[in-house]
Design a protein around this nucleic acid. Structure first.
Length: 873
RNA sequence: GCGGGUGUGGCGGAAUCGGUAGACGCGCCGGACUCAAAAUCCGGUUCUGGUGACAGAGUGUCGGUUCGAGUCCGACCACCCGCACCA
């Protein structure tokens, strides 16, 4: 008998239409069932979806469809993270308006996403560049300004002196502007900030209340916030060496216990003391200027060679008025952290040690490692940073570092310096306030005015939205809003006088920090409908890339706190469950210096070696490493091509099956073909078996037929396992189970005919129906076609998850591996309820055990019921 | 540089609580069907030695704890992600 091959090109659009017409995925807040909000990180509309999107949205869709089948009221929306630099780059390169470019990209990508057959509620769709959306974001900004959560301060940017524009970190390459090639400078601008540090303590503490987050993400966030308890410590400056008007410097230290090992003080290049000292010192000015050419990213600063400049200024040691410590300006001290000044104790900090060795500064150990001789111990090129006993430290000698910390704090809190305590305890955070100002066009305008008489004034709520002007040009670099002829002109809502608009727009991270809340009431006049937000939030399962582990997630957590303060919702945390997926990676190919896309490559197998041939030239080319799919390396596979030739189900099945979802998946053509073969195999199994089951009884309970029982056990066990795997997001394991079941059913069904015992036919029908429902979350289109072919009613997308009969999950007997001295030597089959003593007895009767013992008694007999037996001879 | 992660056959991976290492898939090899091919079906496939039963080795490297370690502990190596203006 021949059956027709399954044709996804006709089946997939048909079922997508059927779902849309049934409005199956349009969610009502008050519908029956417990709420479940599943969300994947929304995409940036770059123009085409890539395989990372396919993976991300396939993962989320399995969860959404599964939860729906389990009876939950599922919210599964989609939108667009649509502001950002690529639209401006496109505008400059292709002379296309960022809005036009963005909305055309959205249209193209929406079509692509729809071809994946995702169970999304498209009625809630929005883009962050919609005026409707950024209007509400401006409302939020005003509320936050009102609550003191937004403020202005000076901050540094990367400045390109040739293009006269601010550069993003990614636009700075080796300290030079990406277009101009000019040396980038640091420049200070007054910019807008969100006061995320107000919540630093809570953001760190509340991580403990997120058990469904990966531990690694919580750890990364905790480290990012970086809470540390230390001392603000004031050092007097030796008057003769200090610049005029400067008599002290304050450092922040977490190691006051090592104060007697202090060998230098280092201040940031932007520290007031450095500035002051440079006034009459051209060499220092040059050094500070050099520091400013490093760019603003922490990475660049940390990787730069550690350098210092001796200012000639000396500080007086707090515990010894005769002891002088030199003050350096150093490029590794950050003005943003602590006080912008540190004291260095080289013996117990690696960076300080490197610095001291470089500049010939003393290295005096003050913490003695356990079991070391105080006379003999010295520090070479490795600092001792562990616990020990304080020595060489006067009144601290013999204390532990913790005790010494306390002793120093107590004494210096009570010591007067220029009329104030010399030290003060302080909890410090690494976390800095969130700078949201961007000197760009394609972002949400900050709704603020600068009035000549009133200063900085928030735009009146009724004047919102502050819309982006459409008539802009990208002929010149820099911010088009800044040079727009009329847009800046405004009336001050306070005094009615002339004012000019703020031309900074918001960081696009702001847009993505509350979109999940907007989805709960996407057309509300206010930013949220608090009732809907509180009903749906938190997001039960949030899924996205690990690259967002810190910033996006931390900002969203901050926003929920800020929005609660402003009354927009009542919520502790935005994302109850978080899952970070791995990337989609692919081999790279290069022809000399040129990267070659996979579609232009074919392979030859010669003498066991795999060779790549460039199709367009017929020449052999080099096979490179397996790397993240990227435009620059051209190692991309277009999902459209895959869906066009194999169908969405094949693409979904492949990205779900090959790797655990939190790890990278390597896209291979062979893997996709394998997935497609399985699609056809399943279809064949269904269409070849269905006719045999026309007269099968509808209920399958028959235990009188062994074969029927075997089929039923297999089906029920698989469904139980697949359900558990999906709950744990172990999709690759769920798929392995489906493969096993199909292997088993194919063998059993081949032997079936109309004359088979009714119980067996009934078991087969039940198994087939369960199988189809089990694959439906992963291959929804094929499942619908199969559902129809086996004669079930309605849409499988609306069918409940199969009920598992628990009595079919256990066996009467268990087979235990038997080890001798930890190596497996055989098996032992015992009744499932056998106790330890029964197993011991049975083990000692086994042939190979008797032989191994050779008449002796075992040294030890380890029996773990249900697991293993180990005989120690 | 700092923070976080990963490492198991030819390849992707499985092993849920310290208990049979290699489920399942890909690839490869052999067979069936076919005039032939494709498709499909069946069998085999960690490595080494052996015709074979079997024996030994084996989870990045080195060491440790344990009756038993892929799993726990210590040191190291390689690769990947993030580092506040890419999204």
């Amino acid at each position: 008998m021949t059956t027709e091959r399954y044709n996804p090109r006709t089946a997939e659009p048909k079922w997508q239409k059927a779902w849309a017409e049934a409005k199956l995925f349009e969610t009502q807040t008050d519908a029956a069932g417990e709420k479940y909000y599943v969300l994947e990180m929304f995409p940036y509309p770059s123009g085409r979806i890539h395989m990372g999107h396919v993976r991300n949205y396939a993962l989320g869709d399995v969860v959404a469809r599964y939860k729906r089948a389990k009876g939950f009221n599922v919210l599964h929306p989609m939108g667009w993270d649509a502001f950002g630099m690529p639209a401006e780059n496109a505008a400059m390169q292709n002379k296309v308006h960022p809005a036009k470019w963005t909305y055309e990209n959205i249209d193209a990508m929406r079509t692509q996403l729809k071809s994946m057959g995702l169970s999304l509620d498209w009625s809630r769709e929005f883009a962050t560049c919609d005026v409707d959306y950024y209007h509400r974001q401006q409302m939020l900004f005003l509320d936050m300004l009102d609550k003191g959560l937004a403020y202005r301060k000076k901050s540094k940017v990367n400045w390109d002196p040739v293009d006269m524009t601010v550069l993003a970190n990614e636009q700075v390459i080796d300290g030079k502007g990406w277009r101009s090639g000019a040396d980038v400078e640091q420049r200070e601008l007054v910019q807008w900030f969100f006061k995320i540090t107000d919540f630093a303590d809570d953001l760190a503490a509340a991580l403990d209340a997120l058990p469904n987050w990966p531990e690694k993400v919580r750890l990364m966030q905790r480290n990012w916030i970086g809470k540390s308890e230390g001392l603000m410590l004031r050092w007097a400056l030796e008057t003769a060496t200090a610049p005029e008007g400067q008599r002290e410097v304050t450092v922040f230290t977490t190691r006051p216990d090592t104060l007697f090992g202090a060998s230098f003080i280092a201040v940031a290049a932007d520290h007031p003391l450095a500035q002051k000292a440079a006034e009459n010192n051209p060499d220092l000015q040059a050094f500070i200027a050099e520091c400013r050419r490093t760019g603003t990213s922490a990475e660049a600063l940390e990787k730069a060679e550690k350098k210092g400049f001796a200012t000639g200024i000396e500080a007086v040691h707090p515990f010894d008025p005769e002891w002088r410590v030199p003050v350096y300006v150093a490029n590794f001290v950050l003005m943003e952290y602590g006080t912008g000044a540190v004291f260095g104790c080289p013996a117990h900090d690696q960076r300080d040690l490197d610095f001291a060795r470089k500049y010939g500064l003393p290295v005096k150990p003050v913490v003695l490692p356990p079991h070391e001789d105080p006379v003999a111990f010295s520090v070479g090129n490795e600092a001792f940073t562990d616990d020990g006993t304080i020595y060489n430290s006067g009144f601290l000698d013999g204390k532990t570092p913790d005790e010494a910390f306390e002793a120093v704090a107590e004494r210096l809190e009570a010591t007067d310096l220029f009329g104030a305590p010399q030290a003060e305890r302080r909890v410090n955070y690494r976390l800095r306030d969130w700078g949201i100002s961007r000197q760009r066009y394609w972002g949400c305008p900050i709704p603020v005015l600068h009035c000549e008489s009133c200063g900085v004034v928030p735009e009146a709520r009724e004047n919102l939205p502050v819309k982006l002007p459409d008539d802009i040009d990208f002929e010149k670099p820099g911010n088009p809003l800044d040079r727009h002829a009329t847009w800046r002109k405004a009336i001050c809502p306070r005094c009615g006088g002339d004012a000019s608009r703020e031309t900074d727009t918001m960081d696009t991270f702001v847009d993505s920090s509350w979109y999940f809340a907007r989805f709960t009431a996407p057309r509300a006049d206010e930013p949220t409908d608090p009732q809907a937000a509180n009903a749906w939030l938190p997001v039960d399962q949030y899924i996205g890339g690990i690259e967002h582990a810190i910033l996006h997630l931390l900002y969203s957590r901050f926003f929920v706190r800020a929005m609660r303060k402003c009354g927009h919702l009542d919520l502790d945390e935005p994302f109850k469950g978080l899952f970070t997926q791995g990337m989609v990676v692919h081999e790279t190919y290069r022809d000399g210096r040129e990267w070659v896309p996979p579609v232009d490559v074919r392979f030859e197998e010669a003498e066991g070696a795999r060779r790549a041939i460039r199709i367009s030239s017929g020449q052999p080319i080099e096979i490179g490493g397996i790397e993240k799919m990227s435009k620059s390396k051209k190692n991309v596979v277009d999902p459209d091509d895959i869906i066009g030739s194999y169908g969405a189900d094949t693409a979904r099945w492949f990205v779900l099956s090959d790797s655990p979802p939190d790890r990278d998946v390597i896209w291979t053509e062979a893997g996709v073909e394998g997935a497609h073969r399985f699609v056809q195999r399943l279809w064949r199994l269904v269409t070849e078996t269905a006719p045999k089951l026309r007269d099968a009884p509808s209920s399958a309970s028959g235990g009188e037929d062994d074969e029927a029982l075997t089929i039923r056990k297999a089906a029920h066990r698989t469904v139980a396992g697949v359900g558990e795997d999906i709950e744990r997001l172990g999709f690759n394991k769920a798929i392995a189970r489906v493969h096993e079941l199909v292997n088993q059913l194919a063998a059993a069904f081949a032997k079936l005919d109309a004359g088979s015992p009714p119980a067996r036919l009934a078991a087969a029908r039940e198994a087939l129906s369960m199988l189809v429902r089990a694959i439906a979350p992963m291959m929804p289109h094929l499942a619908e076609s199969a559902w129809e072919a086996i004669g079930e009613d309605g849409l499988v997308a609306a069918a409940p998850w199969p009920t598992v009969d628990d009595t079919l999950l256990s066996d009467d007997t268990v087979t235990l591996p038997v080890q001798i001295n930890g190596k497996k030597r055989g098996d032992l089959t015992v009744p499932a309820e056998a106790g330890k003593a029964d197993i011991e007895q049975a083990t000692l009767a086994l042939d190979f055990v008797v032989a191994a013992l050779d008449g002796k008694t075992p040294k030890r007999l380890v029996v773990v019921p249900g697991r293993i037996v180990n005989v120690v001879v």
